[in-house]
Design a protein around this nucleic acid. Structure first.
Lengths: 215, 215
DNA sequence: GACTTCTGTTACCGCAAGTAACACCTGGAG
DNA sequence: CTCCAGGTGTTACTTGCGGTAACAGAAGTC
């Protein structure tokens, strides 16, 4: 082609710019929390607001682009743990541990993805993360359901059972991880094995205590 | 004791007013979704903004008061199911069913408690529910942990195990319920028994499918 | 009648999302 | 060389929210 701007060059330039903007947004969000303003993000990127809006449409669009990066990274790590060649319990534990290690390593990213507007000292402006955290959990749940359905022999109604379990297990992992990240009541290994024990029916198998009719 | 305003009368009048305001806020939130504005709530109550602020401090205060009502109601229903005299599996199922019945009966309340800013067509102003949904789930998790710890014989480390399980089970129930409420893929009874099966270790007990190394 | 206290109001501030309108550069077309 | 097209970027604005003075009336107390 010619010496100058072809369409492809323009497109790749735009994509590169988009990546730069996303990285700037990432820095600001990780520094200021989820209530980072569009002005602040634009300033971090060295530009002004309307450019952000030209690239991402609105704040939700920017957020979605930002969340997709992290979400995809987490998902591929989980898939790897889930597909490793080992027996079931080990793989469940590895998957739980991968998730917990991820949220432990980058708690700001995690909080940004899952919790809207942490410290709203001023008004409550902030990324509407709640609306988008559901999609992440849903994706995880569906993904896990697929894996369960295609690997475990559950008899009739297996598909529905697998989906219920997929979402339920993801929710268990998420809630326990959220609580653990806040209080750090035990080591990661302990948490992993406790959760795996739960999934392995230890609650059902345990005996009642001396007092009361038992749980 | 005069003919008119004693302190107690004033206090009870203030409390009654507060209840009226909360009921108005409830109506607006349930009609307009979580992004209901303070102006709209004040208008519904037949007054103007500053009065709301005198009563509740700020928007978060109003939200907390609003959430506490629903949360307390849900919690007492769950406690009843959890404390019923029956064997463990039946009580687990009854508790799950109570929770699911509650969110099924009043999905708007549920969404308000759990999901921030549903339809932000305008900006993303809305109640910062995410910050407060965590407390609800935490309360549920801790409550369940107490029940488990005092009823089930778990041997050494039982307290930590019970807390992990409490939060994990609550998260499982929450995520599965959220997904079920959105997609309605099966009946409530089916969901309940599927989740109970999961807790009873059916995932661990199931065999591998013909292909692959098994999950 | 003055003083407090509770009710309520109007009018404003600050700040954030989002937009319109304008300015600049750079390369190709007549 | 000039004019146009499409990208970059800007300033300045609107709208709508949370939140807050500052003020006004009613009613009981001294």
């Amino acid at each position: 082609m010619d010496t100058t701007h072809t369409d492809e060059q323009q497109r790749s330039a735009a994509a590169r710019r988009r990546r730069e903007l996303l990285e700037a947004a990432d820095r600001v969000v990780l520094r200021d929390g989820p209530q980072a303003s569009m002005n602040a993000i634009a300033a971090e990127a060295g530009i002004t607001k309307p450019i952000l809006y030209r690239h991402f449409g609105d704040k939700g669009g920017l957020y979605r682009a930002l969340a997709k990066r992290h979400t995809d990274a987490l998902l591929s790590a989980l898939r790897a743990a889930l597909d490793a060649p080992a027996e079931r319990r080990q793989r469940v534990e590895a998957t739980l541990d991968t998730y917990l290690a991820a949220i432990e390593a980058l708690p700001e990213v995690y909080r940004f993805l899952m919790h809207p507007a942490e410290d709203a000292h001023q008004p409550e402006q902030g990324f509407d993360v709640g609306r988008h955290s559901a999609p992440l959990l849903r994706r995880l749940g569906e993904e896990l359901a697929m894996v369960i359905a295609e690997r475990v022999d559950l008899g009739p109604g297996s598909e529905q059972l697998a989906r219920v379990w997929g979402h339920g297990i993801v929710g268990m992992m998420h809630a326990a991880g959220d609580w653990w990240l806040g209080e750090r009541p035990c080591s990661r290994e302990q948490l992993v094995s406790s959760l795996a024990d739960l999934l392995w029916g230890r609650l059902a198998a345990a005996g009642d205590r001396a007092d009361g009719p038992g749980f």
